[in-house]
Structures are given as structure tokens and as C-alpha cells.
Amino acid sequence: MKIRFMVSVFFVLLLSNAFSAPSDAEDHRGNPQDIFRPPQRIVSLVPAVTEELFLLGMGDSIVGVTVYCQRPPEAQVKEKVGTVIDANVEKIIELSPDLVIASPLSGRRQTRKLQRLAINVEVFDEAVDFKGLCENFLRLSRLVKKEEEGRKVIREAKRDLKSISESLGASSSPRVFVQIGANPLFTAKGESFINDLVERARGINIAKDATNGIFSREEVIERNPDIILIATMGIIAEKEKEVWLRYQEINAVNKGRIFTIDSNRVCSPTPVSFVDTVKELVELFHGEQ
């Protein structure tokens, strides 16, 4: 009997707790933010966004970045609030920002906590191609009231890409395999920046049809790429190169066309660095042979 009584008390209390629960509203005081004034104190939890803010001339308004925000060099002296995937809520609150920019990789618990504390958090979805990159960049430039500057950067980037494409003329397209991870062998599938980079540099990504990034070495040998690109993972890149050298059957190995590229730049680009990387790839794909 005692137990039954207690169980019913428990549920009554639990329910009463549930009905009084949704107290989000009280936390949202709603900052009376001036819609014409650009944000003055920005925390960026995305390395590419940090770089883009500097591009837009908003570097001085950044008050906090992640430990991975290394570019441009000015970003390195900004206050660190954690990593891309694990931001420190306390640190961010202390900086009292008027805009926090997060990505889907940022811890969800953290971003929700910040939102509950009435801090303006904008989550930027990861772009997978140049088009998405430009959309994100434009959204960012609108947020910081620099739409004109943003449009200008994009216009220039598009113009550069167009002239690259024209300069390539009718040159033949090499078949490319891009390795972005080892053990398991990991590559870039069709829906990714890397695929877009390779295609804009007039290359064919042999793993375009892969459903997820894991790719077998057998498959690489079978598809026989003309070029192997290894995104640098520190020392591993050299080691991986040695592994490939065992497979002389592959065109790329046979002709010595195994290259390394900076993984930071290919995986989290800005419109500007995207164009730079395309130029670099064009050099590798179609340069002197």
C-alpha cells in the first residue's frame, strides 16, 4: 500500500512538474537590438566564418574564436572560447556577445543553452559546393550589415572562376582520386567541396558516385586515377604516399603524380580561398607534365 501511494504521489508531482515546465519564455528577454546597427561583439565558432569576417572588414568586432581559427594571423590573438565542436558556454557569456555564429558541428547542448540565455545564435549550415558557400557568405555579410562588400567579394570570385574555366579551353580532364583520410581509406563523395573543387579545375572525381566516404583500395586500383591528391593530415600524408607507391599499376603512381594539399583550405574555404585552391589544382592537373 505504502508503495502504491508513493508511486501515485510521484506521478502527480511529475505531471505537475511537466505542466509548469516550458519556461523557455521567461529566459528570452529579447534583446532590443537595433536592426540597422552592425553587431559589435561577435563570437565565431567556425574557422571559415572567422576568416570571412576578416574579409568583410569586421575583424575588430570579433571578440571570441575557436582554437582552430588560425587564419588570418590576426585571428590568432583573439580570445579563445573552445573548439569547433565544444565551445565553453561560460566564456561566451562572459564576453557578452551580440552575435554568436555556430555550425551544425557546434555542440547542440551548448548552442541551445546560449539561445536560452537570450544570446543571438545564428547556425550556419555547412555548404557542400561553391554555390552554397556564396549563399552562406551573403547571409553572413547581411548579418553584419556589409552586404555591399559581400556581394563584391562574390562577384570577384565568380569572375575569377569564369576566367579560369575559359583559360582551360578544351584541355582534357584527368581522373582524380582525393584521399582525405586513412584507415579506413576515406574520400570525397559527389556532395562535397572537394568534388566541386576538382570539377572546377577540370578534373573528374572518380569517387563521385560513392554513397559515403569510405572507399576500398581495390576500387581505386580498378578505377585507375591519373592523379592522387592527399589532403594533408600532418605526417600521415607522407606515409600514405609510400603506401600508394606499392601500386605501380595505378597511372598516378606510375607517372609520379601524387600530390598533397592543405586540408584546412579544402575543407573549410571562404569564397576567396576556394578560388585560390582551384587555381592551385589547375596548376597540378594541367601544368607542365
Partner: peptide
């Protein structure tokens, strides 16, 4: 780290 106070309660 749990943002929802109801869950904590």
C-alpha cells in the same frame, strides 16, 4: 551540460 531545466528537474 543540459540546457533544458525541466529535464534536470
Amino acid at each position: 551540460e543540459e540546457p533544458n531545466p525541466w529535464l534536470i528537474k
